[in-house]
C-alpha cells in the first residue's frame, strides 16, 4: 500500500514534470495500485467464479471433475440447473412475498432507528448511555431464545398470518425483523450522527430551526452514506433470512419468501444440492441491484457541500 498510496492524486504525480523521477514514480505506483486492486479482487472472486461455473454444469460433471475443467473439452455447459430453479413451483409468488416482507421490514427499523439514534447522539436524557449499551449488548442474544416468548405473544394477540387480513399477513415478520434489526441499526446510525460537527447544530439553533428541521434537513442528508449502507445490509439480511420467516409466518405457499421456496429445491436427504449454486446466483440478483442503486450515495463531499448550504 505504501507505494500505491500516492497514485491518482492530482496533487502529487500530476504536477510533476513529464519523465522526471517523480513522474515515473507516480506512474509506477499507479500500476502497483491497479495490480493490487485487481489482484485482491480476483483472488476474492475465486469461490464466486467457482460457483458461477458450477451453476452451469450438469450434476454428473460437478461430481466427477473440478469446475475449472469446464473450460476444457468436453465443454459440458447446461442451463438445466437454472431451468430447474426457475420452474420451481410457486417461484413467482414467493418472489413477490420476499419483496412484501423485505421492503417494510427494511424501512420500519431504519426509520425507527434513525429517530432513536438522533436522540442518543444529540439529546440528553437520564440513563442515556446505559440504555444505549443495553441495546448494543442484546445484539449478542441468540435469536432462537426469543422465538417462543415472542411467538406465544403473537398467537395470544391474534398476530398470525391466518388471523390477519390479506396484505397484513406479513405483519409478524415485519415486527420481528424490526425488533431484531434495530440494535445494529441504532448502533451504526448513532455513531454516524454523533460524529457530525456540533457547529451544525449550534448554527441551526441560532437560526431558530426546530428539532424536526434539524433532523430532516441536516442530520439525515448528511448521513446518506451511512443510511445507504444500513439499508443495504438490513435488506440483505431479511432477503436471505430463512429461520425468522419460517417461525413467524411459516412456509405455506401464500406467504413463503424466496428462501423457503429455494431451500425446498433439495430433498430431505440433501439430494439436489448442486441446484443451490444456481439458486444462489438467482437470489443474489436482487440484493446486488439494491447495492448498485445505492452505491451512488457513497460519494465524498456531501458533508462539505451541506455545511456551506
Amino acid at each position: 500500500m505504501s507505494v500505491a498510496a500516492a497514485a491518482d492524486r492530482p496533487g502529487t504525480a500530476a504536477t510533476a514534470a513529464r519523465f522526471s523521477p517523480q513522474w515515473i514514480a507516480g506512474r509506477l505506483s499507479g500500476v502497483v495500485l491497479h495490480l493490487a486492486v485487481i489482484g485482491l479482487t480476483v483472488a476474492w472472486m475465486v469461490p464466486t467464479i467457482g460457483i458461477l461455473f458450477t451453476s452451469f454444469r450438469p450434476f454428473t460433471a460437478i461430481n466427477s471433475s473440478g469446475w475449472w475443467l469446464a473450460l476444457s473439452p468436453p465443454f459440458q455447459f447446461t442451463l438445466d440447473n437454472y431451468s430447474k430453479v426457475l420452474s420451481t413451483s410457486n417461484l413467482g409468488h414467493s418472489f413477490f412475498n420476499s419483496f412484501m416482507i423485505s421492503i417494510p421490514a427494511t424501512i420500519i427499523p431504519v426509520a425507527i432507528a434513525a429517530f432513536a439514534a438522533y436522540a442518543f447522539a444529540w439529546m440528553k436524557f437520564p440513563f442515556r448511555d446505559w440504555i444505549f449499551l443495553a441495546i448494543v449488548g442484546v445484539l449478542a442474544i441468540p435469536l432462537q431464545l426469543s422465538f417462543v416468548p415472542v411467538l406465544s405473544f403473537f398467537v395470544a394477540h391474534g398476530i398470525t398470518p391466518s388471523a390477519l387480513p390479506p396484505g397484513l399477513q406479513y405483519l409478524p415478520v415485519w415486527l420481528a425483523h424490526t425488533g431484531y434489526g434495530l440494535p445494529f441499526s441504532i448502533y451504526l446510525l448513532a455513531n454516524f450522527f454523533r460524529a457530525l460537527p456540533s457547529e451544525l447544530f449550534e448554527s441551526a439553533e441560532i437560526d431558530g430551526a426546530g428539532t424536526l428541521t434539524v433532523f430532516f434537513r441536516i442530520v439525515l442528508p448528511l448521513s446518506v452514506p451511512a443510511l445507504a449502507s444500513l439499508v443495504i445490509f438490513q435488506f440483505l439480511w431479511i432477503w436471505n433470512d430463512l429461520l425468522v420467516a419460517l417461525i413467524y409466518v411459516g412456509g405455506q405457499p401464500e406467504v413463503a419468501p424466496l428462501t423457503v421456496t429455494l431451500a425446498n429445491l433439495t430433498n430431505s436427504y440433501g439430494q439436489g444440492y448442486h441446484l443451490l449454486t444456481a439458486a444462489a446466483f438467482f437470489s443474489m440478483f436482487v440484493p446486488l441491484i439494491v447495492f448498485l442503486s445505492l452505491q451512488r450515495y457513497f460519494v465524498r463531499g456531501i458533508l462539505a457541500g451541506s455545511v456551506k448550504g
Binding site: I112, F115, I131, I135, I141, L175, L182, I186
Partner: peptide, 10 residues
C-alpha cells in the same frame, strides 16, 4: 418506539 421493540423482542 425503538425501546418498545428492543425490549419486547430482545
Amino acid at each position: 418506539p425503538a425501546l418498545i421493540f428492543v425490549f419486547g423482542f430482545l
